[in-house]
Amino acid sequence: MEIEEKYIPFWKELNDNERSMLARSAVERVLSKGALLHGGTAGCLGLLVVRSGQLRIFVLSDEGKEITIYRLFEFDICLFSASCAMNGIQFQISIEAERETKLWVIPAAVYKKLMGSSIAAANYTNRLMASRFSEVMWLMEQIMWKSFDKRLAGFLLEERAVEGSDTITLTHDKIAAHLGTAREVVTRMLRYFQSEGAVNLSRGSVALTDLKRLRELAE
């Protein structure tokens, strides 16, 4: 399927040649849940435009520890996967499909050419890159200054909003990967939350039983 203009915020500000270049170069991809689209040491993938589904963007340490830096949903665009198109930007990320996901990949060379010819594309890129770096800095502040009980409670509430359910279908290992810690740390804290009546634990899922208490813990 050819890329749709509603997914490109600056589409109307492009000229006909630029629109044609985008339409010709965009490659549609369909990812199954759990598929790894991009590894941190892989080459420059290109600009990602999410048509539907959900992607997890994370970084991986030399010791194999993961931490989620942000998610992408419908209409979202990933720039870090095309960082080679931007001078002076070096950022290694991994990308995993958390749900079946349909997206377009615009080759980095094509997007770099587009930024050179379109002020609208260049301005949008700068705004989005600044926003993504702000998210990364916010995450670093959370890790450095916020206690783990607050981070975990906040994460569970965020997951509730993402899944649209009071039951979070994630293992302790997966929660640990999102938060950049060990599974044992997650398990101990979840058991504490359960003793407080805030959650109920079962294999592969966490039921949020007291949202008020979780909000208190998060604050």
Score class of each variant (00 low, 15 high):
M1L: 15
E4N: 07
E5H: 12
Y7T: 04
P9D: 08
F10L: 03
F10P: 04
W11H: 02
K12M: 12
D16M: 10
D16T: 13
D16W: 12
N17F: 15
E18A: 09
E18D: 09
R19L: 09
M21F: 11
A26Y: 05
A26N: 06
E28M: 15
V30Y: 14
K33D: 08
K33E: 11
L36H: 10
G39A: 09
G40F: 13
A42P: 04
G43R: 07
C44S: 13
L47M: 11
L47A: 07
L48V: 12
V50N: 02
G53K: 04
L55E: 00
I57T: 03
I57K: 00
V59N: 00
L60H: 11
D62C: 13
D62K: 11
E63P: 05
E63S: 15
K65N: 09
E66G: 05
T68G: 02
T68M: 04
T68W: 00
L72Y: 00
L72Q: 00
E74C: 04
F75K: 15
I77W: 01
L79N: 03
L79H: 07
F80S: 05
S81L: 05
A82P: 00
A85S: 10
G88N: 12
G88S: 11
I89E: 10
I89N: 09
Q90M: 13
Q92E: 14
I93Y: 03
I95E: 00
I95P: 00
A97E: 01
E98S: 03
E100R: 10
K102T: 14
K102W: 08
L103W: 02
W104A: 02
I106C: 03
I106K: 01
A108N: 11
A109R: 09
A109S: 13
A109F: 08
A109E: 08
Y111M: 02
Y111L: 03
Y111S: 01
K112T: 09
M115A: 05
G116C: 06
S117I: 08
I119D: 10
N123D: 14
N123A: 15
N123M: 14
N123H: 12
N126Y: 15
L128E: 10
A130P: 03
E135L: 14
M137R: 15
L139I: 07
M140H: 13
M140K: 15
E141K: 12
I143H: 07
I143N: 04
I143M: 13
K146A: 09
S147P: 06
S147L: 13
F148K: 01
L152I: 04
L152Q: 00
F155K: 04
L157D: 01
L157W: 01
E158W: 03
V162L: 09
E163K: 09
S165I: 06
D166A: 08
D166P: 10
T167D: 05
T167M: 08
I168E: 02
L170K: 05
T171L: 05
H172A: 15
D173Q: 13
D173N: 12
I175L: 06
A176Q: 02
T181Y: 03
A182H: 13
R183E: 11
E184V: 14
V185W: 03
T187K: 08
R188Y: 12
L190T: 04
L190C: 11
R191C: 15
S195Y: 11
G197I: 06
V199R: 00
V199L: 05
L201C: 03
S202M: 10
G204P: 02
S205I: 05
T209E: 07
D210R: 06
L211G: 07
L211R: 06
R215E: 15
